[in-house]
Every structure is written in C-alpha cells, then in structure tokens.
Nucleic acid binder design. Structure first.
Lengths: 340, 340
DNA sequence: TTTCCACACGCAAACGTTTGCGTTGACCCT
DNA sequence: AGGGTCAACGCAAACGTTTGCGTGTGGAAA
C-alpha cells in the first residue's frame, strides 16, 4: 500500500527543498533545466498528484459547486444535474450533489456542511418544507458570507440572487391552449396545493388560458392534491364527480394516475378524454399512449444555472452585484394522448 | 458581506490565543470556565463553524464518500444513492456523487479528482466503456493508495475488493420460472450484449431455468441488443420473426418497448403474451398494465455498500484485509403483465 | 521567606501547498 | 583581488485546525 506521494517526499528523495520541487513542477524559470527534468521524471514515476485539500485551503476556493435538490430519485432533477455537470466540468469545476429529501432540516445541514469549506457556490431547488416554513436563513447566511447561490425550479421570490426558472404559468397556458385548439372545453386541472410554487403558477396559467378563450372557470374542475403519495384516491373521486373532455396534470405522476383511472372506467385516451402532462420524463415518453406534455428542458436549466454561478464565482466581485433571472422557454411536445 | 469567522479572528477579538479558543470550544478542562463561556458565547454570536477543509487536511480524512455511477439520470442508480446517503449521513459522512456518463475517461478523471483529497473511499458501478476495455488501473491505483473501494451492480470480478451485487442469474431464473409456472413455453429474452456483465448473467439465468424445466433453448429466442438507444427496430424485427407466449426483458426499457410493439400488432398483455421485466422502477409501476418484474432492491444495495465501506474506513486497517461480496436477494414483484 | 503545585494559558508543529524574497556560489570584469 | 552579476535554490509565511508540552502566575504549605 504505497501512500500518496507529497512534495515533501519527493524533495527528500531528491535532496532538494520543497519549494524547488513545487517550482520545478510548474516549469518555473527559477529552477535549472536539469533539476526540472529530474523532478518531473520522479513525479511521473511516483504518480504525484497535488492534494486538493491543501490547494483548497491555500487558495480559499474549492473549485466545486454544491447542488442541493429535494429528491435524488427524480427524473427532472437528474436531468438538471446532467446540465450542471456538463458546463461545470467543462470549466474545471466539480459537482457535489446532496439531496434534502424535502426536509428542511436536512437542507440546512447539507448546506452548512458544504458551505464550511466544501463548495464555492450553490445551485439549489428548495425543499417542500422550506417553501412551507418560509425560513430561508440558511440560504441568506450563505450568501452573506459571499458564496453565490443560484436557485432553480422551486425558487424563493424574496431571495435576492440569480434564478433559473421556466415560465410555469405560460407553460400551463400553452398546454391548455393546445387542448382548446383541439376542441376541448371541459378541461380539468390536477394540481398541487398552493404553497408549492410551481403548482400555484401552473394553476394560474390554466385559469388565464380559460379566460383568454372565454371558457368559464369552474371551481369543481380544479383539484389541488395535498398528499402526493396517495393521490390515486383523490383523483379517482375527482374524476367521478364530473365529466371532462380533457385533463391537464401538473406532473407526470398525476397524468398517468388519471390515465389509469380512466382506463379502468372504460374511457379511451385521447378519444374520450385528452390528457396533457408537465415535465417530459421517462413516463411520458414510454406510456401508452405516449403523453403530450410540456417540456421544462431540465438539462438546459442546469446549464444556465451553472453558467450563472460560475460567472459570479469568477467575475469581479464588485462588478457582479446584479442578479439575473433566466426564464427558460417551455415547449409543447405533442404525442398521442391529445387529439390530432 | 461578513466573511466566515475563524479561530484566529475570535482569538484576536477576545485577546487570547488561537489554541485557547480551540480548546475552549471543545470544553477542555485546561481552560477556565470563565474563558470557555466567553469564547462560546462569542462563537455562537458570530456563528463560528470550523472549516472542513482545514480539518480534512489535518486529520487526513474527509468524512466523505465518493460515489461514481454510469448515469445520473437513471432510476435504479438514484435509488442506490438514496440508500448510500441514508447510512452515510447517519454515520456522519457526506456523499459526493459523480457520473461517468459511461465514459471511461470521465470515470478516470472523476476518480482521480476525488481520490486526491476529496473522498476517503469509493462506491462505484463502472462505466460500460470500462467493462469493455477491461482497464481498471485507476481503481487499482486508488486501492493501492489505501482507499477502500466498494463495487456494486456492474462489478469487476478481477478486482479484489468489497462488492455488492444481486444474483442476476438467479433473479432471471426466478422470472423465467414464474413464466413457466403460468404455462408459458415459448419464452423469449431481450438481453444486452455479453460484455455488459449483468446482461450476460441474466441470460445465463434464463437458460438455466429453461433447462431445469426441460424446455429446449432456441437461439432464435434470444436477442442481444447492442445499441440501447435504437432498440425499437431490433426488438420489432425480433418479435416478428417468431411467435412467443412470453417475454423476459432484462431492463425496463426493453420491456415497455416490447409492449408497445405488441400493442401495435393487436396483441394483448398478458392474455396473448406475458411480459416480465427487471428492475422495479417508475415505468414498471405505472405502465398499463403494470409490469411484473424482478426487483433489485436498489436502496438496500446502497445501504449495504455504504456499510461495507464505512466498516473498512473505520476499522483497524490491518484486521480488515478481507473482502466480502454481499449478494442481495432479488424478489419477484407480481403485477398485471403476467397471467394470474 | 522559600518551595511546590495547580491552574490557565500560549507556543509551535503538523497537515500539503504556493510564492515572494533572501541567500548562496560561481564566474566575469576591472 | 575585490566587487558585481546572475543563475539556482532555500526560507518562511500563509491557509485554518488540533494538541502535546512548556511556562508563568498565584496561592498555600512548610
């Protein structure tokens, strides 16, 4: 078990000083060509790699980006991470991913952990609990210590920082417009409770689209689901309560759950009921029928977020005291679950 | 922008030495009660948090586990990560996740990066390319430097280290047995090319089950798919070439793709053809009909892997020179895609 | 008054780097 | 021979911790 070789060991072995070794490896003109080559050969032989920890300590930066997401087992978030990694790696940054599991406490712990030396900046989508409690002290504290933060997807309006979002309302509007253009009029929405920002916004877009087409909005056509784990019962009861010719679901799970219930009642999609989802994930693509959906372009979100963060990280700290909110365009992916 | 406060600053402010501050915060009896309380109050006020980087450098350990997986956008791997995080966090470890994107080079880079100071040990499922090239020098090197490695799922037999796997062959056998018990005899397998270890093993299990039931194995009933991205054409041609009464797919994607093709040809699942998959993911659960499948218990794999690694990390380095291979039991999750 | 012992604290080294500056020694010029 | 120059290298500080050991002060016992 050969331990990692350090500058000190090389220096001792070659009978020179540590600084000579360090300079030789950096091709400093201060060191003679002879020595430089000798040192380099030796370093190669022993597979010398500078110790990142020591470098971080010295440089006061880690060259790593901390990403905190509510759930790791979630297709949308992982695509975002993919985007973050892509640009981060290209710029020489590493990416550390932590999941908060939608727990406020774990979000705080992870954040403090990463903030105390492990990351230079953060890309975050906040936990459900955090949105509920409206307690953002951990994020504010991190920012006040000079570490940039970029929020995405589930953002917090009150926080002054860079943000990457989609126009949820507009996306929802697109979805409903599409349904209307296919002749649907009795359009239901399967949404979440209002404290989830995206659920609220998508409901807003739904209502806006209805108004734009002079379709009366009806309270009974709106379902706000609290307990996502047990959404099936809620959706079943809701769908039994009224006749709909179209359903707009704010996520994949609600969409396929609705589909299941409709099938069980002998309905056909899209002939009897059109169905449209939000988030273009695995389910939408492979479901039968494949689901028309609003794509959030997760990877692009990740890329933009990483770019924003790195700009802040590398920019002149004084000149960059302005914050941007990037809005990624959603797009309608038309598939088989809506009428032609 | 108040910068992070260090021991030095507290010391200066309180006009004591750095060591006094450090000891006071650790409740050392060396320091008078007065001073201890003063220091602690000050530290709380300024929200002092020890710098992890400095600690890592001093202690020569980082208390973080590096996880390297082939794809981040993959349900099975993320469930494994969930398990790893669960036990790692419970034991005070952090988890850094990097994806190799199935690229050998990126796997090496990530590994070297994490090995040079960022992680104490590794949990890895190797990239497809790595399995092809059979080049494991990066892993061997890391181990020879004294950093423990735990391999899971896509493991490497030649490497001497801890491993967590499922009995792929046995799992496949379970699947085929189930099909046979439901009266199926013309059973096809949708597998991957042989250099993917799990594909090969599952094929082995398939053959073993057939033999055990005296069902002749037929070359034409086996499809080995090379290009996963474009599996649809291959599967379509394969399914047209013969009549099957059951299909065993080694992953979810192959299963739902087959289902799609069968539907398009007017076949019913499970009445005309029974379908069984591998990996109990989102798709299997929400597909219509929901898919009978072999669950790999990803979360448990992650938990076991993390436990093995932490044992090595914290154990007496001499006494732990033995390596275990943990085999997680697979289980059959019976749903609607196979006959009752 | 001297001696001794706690108590309370500071010094300094160590972890592995980087880098400005000081220090050698050889050689050349006058 | 003395002074100067320059190439080649080492010293030391710094990043933020921890910790063994040394040290100074005070009071009490003899």
């Amino acid at each position: 078990m050969k331990q990692k070789v350090t500058l000190k060991q090389i220096a001792k072995e070659l009978d020179v000083s540590i600084s000579t070794v360090s300079k030789a490896l950096k091709d400093s003109v201060e060191i003679s060509k002879d020595t430089r080559e000798k040192v380099k050969a030796f370093a190669k032989l022993y597979n010398y790699k500078p110790n990142n920890i020591a470098l971080s300590l010295k440089n006061r930066k880690t060259k790593t980006i901390g990403v905190i997401i509510p759930e790791i087992v979630h297709h949308f978030f992982t695509t975002v991470i993919g985007g973050v990694e892509k640009v981060a790696n290209a710029k020489g940054y590493n990416v550390i991913i932590c999941s908060s599991n939608n727990s406020f406490d774990k979000e705080v712990i992870n954040m403090e952990m990463l903030a105390s030396g492990s990351a230079d900046g953060f890309i975050i989508s906040v936990a459900k609990e955090t949105q509920q409690r409206k307690d953002y002290h951990h994020i504010e504290e991190t920012m006040s210590q000079g570490m940039p933060v970029v929020l995405f997807d589930r953002i917090i309006d009150e926080l002054v920082c860079d943000k990457v979002i989609i126009d949820d309302a507009k996306g929802a509007q697109k979805a409903v417009n599409h349904l209307v253009s296919k002749g649907c009029a009795k359009i239901a929405i399967l949404s979440t409770v209002d404290y989830i920002s995206v659920g609220k916004l998508r409901t807003t877009g739904y209502l806006r689209a209805l108004r734009a087409h002079d379709i009366p909005e009806r309270e009974e056509f709106i379902l706000k689901i609290e307990d996502i784990e047990h959404c099936e019962e809620e959706i079943a009861a809701f769908l039994a309560s009224n006749e709909f010719d179209a359903i707009f679901a704010v996520n994949e799970l609600f969409a396929v759950t609705a589909a299941k219930i409709l099938y069980a009642r002998g309905k056909s999609i899209p002939n009897d009921v059109s169905l449209i989802g939000f988030t273009d994930g695995i389910l939408s693509k492979h479901f039968i029928p494949s689901l028309t959906t609003i794509s959030q372009h997760g990877e692009e979100m990740g890329e933009r977020a990483a770019k924003l963060l790195i700009d802040k990280l590398e920019g002149d700290p004084l000149a960059t005291e302005e914050y941007k909110t990037v809005i990624i365009d959603t797009s309608l992916v038309e598939r088989q679950s809506t009428k032609k």
